[in-house]
Amino acid sequence: IDAAQIVDEALEQGITLFVVNNRLQYETSRDSIPTELLNKWKQHKQELIDFLNQLD
């Protein structure tokens, strides 16, 4: 699994991931984030931050 897949998966569930001051953040209108997704974010945090920083 790679960062792009995780970002896409989040988007499919209505969650936008982004980076502020090198910290992973998210925006969503959902009430809660699925635990499975949160765990993936934690496991791949640095990859996600690097990936999202490249997009900007």
Rank of each mutant, 00 (worst) to 15 (best):
I1H: 11
I1D: 07
I1T: 10
D2W: 09
D2T: 15
D2N: 14
D2K: 11
D2R: 13
A3E: 03
A3I: 14
A3G: 04
A3C: 09
A3V: 13
A4M: 07
A4G: 10
A4K: 15
A4P: 05
Q5D: 10
Q5S: 13
Q5K: 13
Q5M: 12
Q5I: 06
I6D: 02
I6Y: 05
I6R: 01
I6E: 03
I6P: 01
V7I: 14
V7G: 01
D8Y: 15
D8P: 01
D8N: 15
D8M: 14
E9Y: 06
E9A: 04
E9I: 03
E9Q: 06
E9P: 00
E9H: 05
E9K: 03
A10L: 04
A10T: 04
L11F: 12
L11K: 15
L11S: 09
L11E: 08
L11R: 15
L11T: 08
L11C: 09
L11H: 08
Q13P: 00
Q13T: 04
Q13D: 04
G14Y: 03
G14T: 02
G14Q: 04
G14C: 05
T16P: 02
T16R: 15
L17S: 02
L17D: 01
F18C: 09
F18N: 06
F18H: 11
V19R: 01
V19W: 02
V20S: 12
V20Y: 11
V20R: 12
N21G: 11
N21S: 07
N21P: 01
N21E: 10
N21D: 14
N22M: 06
N22Q: 06
N22G: 15
N22C: 10
R23S: 15
R23K: 15
R23Y: 12
R23M: 15
R23E: 15
L24I: 07
L24P: 01
L24T: 00
L24H: 01
L24C: 03
Q25D: 08
Y26R: 01
E27Q: 13
E27K: 15
E27Y: 13
E27N: 13
E27A: 14
E27R: 15
E27D: 10
T28N: 05
T28I: 03
T28R: 03
T28S: 10
T28L: 04
T28C: 05
T28H: 06
S29Y: 10
S29G: 09
S29V: 09
S29M: 09
S29R: 08
R30F: 06
R30G: 08
D31M: 05
D31I: 05
D31W: 04
S32P: 15
S32F: 13
I33C: 02
I33D: 02
I33N: 01
I33G: 01
I33T: 03
I33R: 01
I33A: 04
I33S: 01
I33E: 02
P34W: 02
P34L: 02
P34I: 03
P34T: 05
P34A: 05
P34Y: 02
T35K: 13
T35L: 15
E36T: 08
E36L: 08
E36S: 09
E36C: 05
E36N: 09
E36W: 10
E36G: 08
E36A: 11
L37W: 06
L37T: 04
L37D: 02
L37R: 01
L37M: 09
L37P: 00
L37Q: 03
L38F: 08
L38P: 02
L38Y: 08
L38H: 05
N39L: 12
N39G: 07
N39T: 11
K40R: 07
K40Y: 08
K40W: 05
K40F: 09
K40V: 09
W41C: 05
W41Y: 04
W41T: 03
W41G: 01
K42I: 15
K42M: 13
K42Y: 08
H44K: 04
H44L: 06
H44I: 05
K45Q: 15
K45C: 13
K45A: 15
K45R: 11
Q46K: 11
Q46F: 08
Q46G: 06
E47N: 06
E47T: 09
E47F: 07
E47W: 05
E47I: 15
E47V: 13
L48R: 00
L48V: 06
L48H: 00
L48F: 01
I49R: 02
I49C: 04
I49M: 06
D50S: 11
F51C: 02
L52N: 00
L52M: 03
L52I: 08
L52G: 00
L52V: 02
N53C: 07
N53S: 12
N53L: 13
Q54H: 12
Q54L: 11
Q54E: 10
L55Q: 13
L55C: 07
L55K: 14
D56L: 10
D56V: 09
D56N: 15
D56C: 09
D56T: 12
D56M: 10
